[in-house]
Design a binder for these strands. Structure first.
Lengths: 197, 197, 197, 197
DNA sequence: GATGAATGAGTGTTCATTCAT
DNA sequence: CATGAATGAACACTCATTCAT
């Protein structure tokens, strides 16, 4: 079945990627074997290797995909005319995370934590995670200026530092949600609000 | 002479544990092989298996040890008579993390992230991580009451929520520090302080 | 238009064969993959399999072609009226080998050695190599009679034995040339001449 | 069963080596799989890899061993007081080859041809083959001087060239013996003798 | 007790070949 | 016919664990 359309190729890649995400969410990055991916994808070994030339390639694709999902969700926030307070932003973001995690068959946040761990020791994955975190911060940056102008955030503060904490609150939310299962967006946002007075 | 033997046993366990931490910090949990641990510890395979009956056992011990190190450091904070602001607490905690990470031959925070990832899929590790996070929150709890009394935190807020955010800011600090290497305790604390205006 | 088609077919076969020779000279028989041949030939997998029904078929064709090249070169020798001495024959033959090896883009002698090794274990290849060596000996046979008549070779000797040694000197030349790179036709012929004093 | 004697280790290596030789004589170098070697040696995969760290390692050992067997046989020749003629030397050497090939359960000359083919494309094997051929030539060198002094070989000839042809006659003997099965030491030596008058 | 050689199921990956388009 | 995506058995190699000494 040669000379296949680009859409077909893209669909196959997606098929493999989704199969891998399903495996990784359950087994983690390293306990997911290529045999798992092959079985789960319903393709043959050769087919999978036709789309991803190694397991590492697949991990990089997973990393990109997993973090991209988180990211897209956050873009909409700055769109509105009004300026949300930091706790309001956190509420929206954690809500988005929970929605993502629960909407799919798989909990993407499990994949994301696996990717963080891999980023510590694999340069390629680290580059991807770095880029994603930076993008996230940049998405915030404009919002922070508006918040400073509106008196919601100390106007003398370095916006970078503000984005670092704001982004920095999300991993802890994800981790506590998965491990202790006792955090939720409302409580987490309230907790931050409480710190502000 | 059981006393001496017990001490000997404890020393051997520690020796193996430290060897494992060294390996895990560099290679991660799953790329660290028992052969690595055996070589690094300077013991024989049989000896290592005499102290830890499986690799999973060793991982559990690693998880316990890695998170315990973080915890002990934080206890001292509540000891002082004065009541530190939330950002001051964050400053102290992140400083403690950096101190820990840089004081040892190995960066313990790398091990910690590996442990988080494992907690997602291994019930045993998850139980340990849960317990540690809860302990950390409990250590905070008293402090939060004091901060509420002192007007540093909204007295109407649920203390649990406050401890959730306060603890929740640390994983993001650790992650950004390892991956982007552009965060430091002072900036991070300043960022939080800025949110409180 | 069957004529054109046949020529076309022959050209395609040649194209695939040359591509294979190029691969085999570099990688050897077994490290040359069909994918290599396909890529090098510029054809599709299906096309290559249209001309050679298996890799083994291709190997047989390689064997035939590689040894044929050596053979054609040697025919001209007996043509001349004068009777060359054994060392003179060796000089001409080794010169022919070197010329062949250096004239083409690929060193055909590398392919020849690979074919010898395959002949040891594959009956089909062995049959081809057998036939080629026999042909080579036959080409010599007439010459030997002439040399015996001319007193250049012991007239009482069995011509078969003489052709066996004469042919037998060539593999050693090829091997030493490829591996040690310190033999040349002149020295080799001189060496044989020295034995005849 | 730890702390095993050196003899035990050497015996195990030999056991694996002999198993490999048996496989290579039948299947060639590349069709011999590690699974073949493992089965034939009667050991486990891990055990084999404990003695040879890769298949390539094993191939190098095979090359060394296979050619060494040929070599040892040839040393005794120069020992005798009398000076053998070149054809006599060839008779002895080819006899030694046949004896070696037939004395063992496996025909070592089949392995040797496989090694030649590998030497063309693997630098490590080539180094070993080079060294062996050089050693063989050196073993001859003394003999050639004696033959030149005794008038059996042209005294003006370069001894190197003489050793090149003398060594060069052996591959052709081995090859014709395996492929055509119609050469024997007596005929081959007679063929060379015939060239000398 | 301590040792480390041995095990063997399992790992990521390749590749000759087929066949739907 | 020609194409090249797909197949899946096989490959070289690893590694947690055991147990004879």
């Amino acid at each position: 079945m040669p000379k296949v359309t680009d859409e077909h190729r893209a669909a196959r890649r997606q098929q493999i990627l989704m199969a891998t995400l399903r495996c990784v969410a359950v087994e983690g990055l390293h306990r997911t074997t290529m045999a798992d991916v092959i079985r789960e994808s319903g393709l043959s070994a050769g087919a999978v290797y036709g789309y991803f030339k190694s397991k590492n390639d697949l991990i990089l694709a997973i990393a990109e995909f997993g973090l991209a999902l988180m990211d897209t969700e956050l873009r909409g926030l700055a769109k509105d005319g009004n300026v949300p307070s930091p706790d309001e932003v956190t509420r929206q973001l954690t809500r988005a995370i929970v929605r993502q995690a629960e909407s799919q068959e798989i909990d993407i946040t499990k994949v994301v934590i696996a990717v963080w761990a891999e980023a510590v020791r694999d340069e390629g994955v680290r580059a991807i995670v770095s880029e994603r975190i930076r993008t996230l911060r940049d998405s915030y940056a404009g919002l922070v200026s508006a918040q400073q102008a509106a008196g919601l955030v100390d106007p003398d503060a370095d916006p970078l530092h503000v984005t670092q904490v704001m982004v920095g609150m999300l991993p802890g939310f994800i981790l506590q949600r998965l491990v202790l299962q006792d955090v939720d967006p409302e409580g987490y946002a309230d907790g931050l609000a409480a710190l502000r007075r």
